[in-house]
Amino acid sequence: MLARKNIIAILLGIELILNASALNFVAYSKFLAGNMDGQIFSLFIIVVAAAEAAVGLAIVIRFYQINESIHIDDAAQLQG
């Protein structure tokens, strides 16, 4: 099946990490600090993650249009 290392799969991984950290903030702010700052911070994490996903996927699509494959190694040269 899709054997090549798909860039979009990496973006999925990044989404997971951002979620994990946001959850951490909420948990610590509830059990340790007891104030709302943790929730505010994870709200902004969600905002940044959404913006990042939008731009990242735009780059991936543009990359695909240029050289037909989204194989991570093709993305080696910088000028693209």
Binding site: L43, I46, V47, A50, A51, A53, A54, L57, I61
Partner: peptide, 20 residues
């Protein structure tokens, strides 16, 4: 065509804005 992605893009930006 790329238009589908542009629609999704504008949607998510305004979605996040309304969430805030």
């Amino acid at each position: 065509n790329i238009r589908f992605y542009v629609v999704g893009l504008i949607f998510i930006i305004f979605d996040v804005e309304s969430a805030l």
